[in-house]
Write a protein that binds this DNA or RNA. Structure first.
Lengths: 204, 204
DNA sequence: ATATGAAGTAACTAATTAGTTACTTATGAA
DNA sequence: TTCATAAGTAACTAATTAGTTACTTCATAT
């Protein structure tokens, strides 16, 4: 690997950590440079300014989920509808559990009214997954295991919010419920619960 | 009202707006002072420093939900279990829809690992509502309309996350789903969907 | 070997920010 | 009226921050 590539990568790794932890306003360019063991000058040389660096990090993080989604879509082409839906839920649980930075970056972005995502023209970023869920629900209806009334859009919204919110709210919720939501046990319970709710809804 | 009380109130109103919009790091003390039409000196005289002001705002905002919860608990003492659960869902929908600052402050707090809430010893802040839901589910089981397997903790988590996440993720989700989740129509649909899911779960 | 452009360094600037200080004005009880 | 205290002001400080500049070192193709 060229040395400059290595430097860029170190900057991106450090920046992801810093931005995920502290957000755009809280993040310090000097801190990123120090963590990356890179001179601040290089950071500006490669990424222009703080905002461009932030956008790059956000898109990278977002893209890593897209890759996982596409891989599941490819693998589950011939899986039956009910299992496929459960696998999607499982994918999000696993991904969000292992990618705290993703959860946090998306929260910052929501607080920023999705401005960076908007300006990055990523409108179609989730299209593959949405189409896939729609297709699987359609298959389930034809097989006769899903209700004809089931709405793909409802299920997609539910999937995304029910799983994401568990992770994004784990700190305040753990406090309020006096339970550690990050524990494997609680996580498994919630996963099953969400699966049951959604499959129940689909089967009516 | 004493003039100082009026000044304090103006500071709190301006601070809530500023902190909700920009978070602790992004918020500017000078901006708060200007919006409140108050000299910065007074802000420090009354609230000590930026962090103390932030905590005060957070607790105020949090407390406004508690008041709404307590009022519903009082009113629905004798309401049947199923309606009572639906009313709780409705309460959260209405409250969050009308209190964007609450949603945002809680998101900032989650990103801050709930540190302010922790230090503020608000562990019992949701106890009334949790106990109430537990009681209503218990009543439902006795009446025979709810399944004996239904878990109050599951329902409470679901209530809090399913409704909150709709609002906290509305910006990125609207983009991804290419729908305006803030519209009254989408809101009603999601409310009904959440009600159905939860009541279905309770009735098994 | 060496010339050239890319990679890297350290010290700087200009702007912004939380928090302070020394001072003035209003209020209300004796 | 007067005097003590509470409320308010404007200008300041010290620290921090994003971004820049003028310079040096390194790698490599010829």
């Amino acid at each position: 690997m060229k040395k400059s590539e290595d430097t860029k990568k170190r900057i991106l790794v450090a920046a992801e950590e810093e931005f995920a932890q502290k957000g755009f306003y809280g993040a310090r360019v000097d801190e990123i440079a120090e963590c990356a063991e890179v001179n601040k000058r290089m950071l500006y040389a490669y990424f222009g300014n703080k905002e461009e660096l932030y956008k790059t990090v956000l898109l990278n993080v977002y893209n890593s989920l897209s890759l996982a989604e596409d891989s599941l879509i490819e693998n589950d082409k011939n899986t039956d509808a009910a299992t496929a839906v459960q696998n999607v839920i499982g994918l999000y649980f696993d991904f969000l559990k292992n990618n705290d930075n993703f959860v946090r970056m998306l929260m910052w972005e929501n607080l920023n009214n999705a401005n960076c995502l908007k300006s990055a023209k990523t409108q179609n970023i989730k299209k593959n997954m949405i189409d896939y869920i729609e297709k699987k629900i359609c298959e389930g209806k034809i097989e006769g295991i899903f209700s004809q009334n089931a709405s793909a859009q409802r299920v997609t919204t539910a999937l995304l919010t029910f799983v994401f919110s568990y992770f994004s709210n784990k700190h305040t919720l753990s406090l309020v419920l006096d339970k550690n939501l990050a524990s494997q046990e609680e996580l498994n319970t919630h996963r099953e619960f969400v699966c049951d709710l959604i499959i129940n809804y689909l089967k009516n």
